[in-house]
Nucleic acid binder design. Structure first.
Ligand SMILES: [Mn+2]
Ligand SMILES: [Mn+2]
Ligand SMILES: [Zn+2]
Ligand SMILES: [Zn+2]
Lengths: 139, 139
DNA sequence: ACATATTTGCAATTATGTTGCAAATTTTAT
DNA sequence: ATAAAATTTGCAACATAATTGCAAATATGT
């Protein structure tokens, strides 16, 4: 359990606890985004469901992770890499969901393009999710 | 309850029932996308929750309505206007969600732009949702 | 009008998420 | 190092959303 993770918690003014270290560690080693259920399963020494909900919520508020709006309306989370801050995210990258392996991936370098909206619409935030086959799964 | 709605059901090889007529009618007269809860409330002579779930699922399978992946992971539905077919949708338009009034709108004329993905990713379907203020709500 | 096929509503079950609170843990002050 | 204060955790209870099996009701084809 790396020292860097502990530091991240401290940098964000959060108490350093086992659950938080363990969950953050999962995110750092995960191949893609994680759902609540993924975390619940992977947690070696069991973490309570409620603690997981609260930890995810706290991480999200602190700008450590962001939620990903997938097409099937399931909630997934991934680390923020865009120096998000407490209370305000700016992860404006595209997300990819593999229809075969189910992996959900942040395409950190692919920005969500602007679109021209009809008269009167005032955009604030855009989300884009692409479904298809990831590099591991295309045939 | 228009005859056209009845015909739409027949054209799609579905039995014509009160629930279906009533729900389809709602979609035709709604100002935006509808959530399961919206339908449950509006139904004049009460339709069972389960029937609503099943009706929405059937409509979706038949290519009559499509789901909208909102940023807050709530499920909304709207009529397909892009001649979707049984089993395969191709609603490739942008969706707009108003942060003030909550209305969710299909921007049928705004196509989801293509994005260049990293090497190896094979896109199949893209979704884009824009949040902001709709024409009625901007100040 | 009847037989057949489909849909509906109900009850039971499962999944997902939230809240209050006491006990445990972590942090801060001494 | 110890104690007090602050925060976090786990449990139980609750709330909400969604799914399933099945019998009764309704719709369809003849
Ligand atoms: Mn991301
Ligand atoms: Mn739409
Ligand atoms: Zn894959
Ligand atoms: Zn609005």
């Amino acid at each position: 359990m790396s020292e860097a993770i502990k530091d991240l918690l401290k940098k964000n003014h959060m108490s350093v606890t086992d659950s938080r270290l363990q969950i953050l560690d999962m995110f750092y080693h995960a191949p893609g985004a994680l759902a609540h259920a993924d975390i619940e399963k992977k947690a070696s020494d069991k973490i309570d469901r409620v603690t997981i909900y609260r930890t995810l919520q706290t991480f999200e508020e602190k700008g450590i992770i962001h939620t990903i709006p997938t097409a099937d309306n399931s909630v997934k989370y991934a680390l923020c890499k865009d120096r998000c801050e407490e209370g305000h995210h700016h992860d404006n990258h595209v997300h990819f969901v593999c229809d075969k392996c189910g992996k959900t991936i942040c395409l950190d370098d692919v920005h969500v393009p602007e679109v021209k909206l009809p008269k009167g619409f005032q955009p604030q935030q855009s989300n884009m999710v692409v479904n298809g086959f990831c590099s591991d799964c295309r045939s």
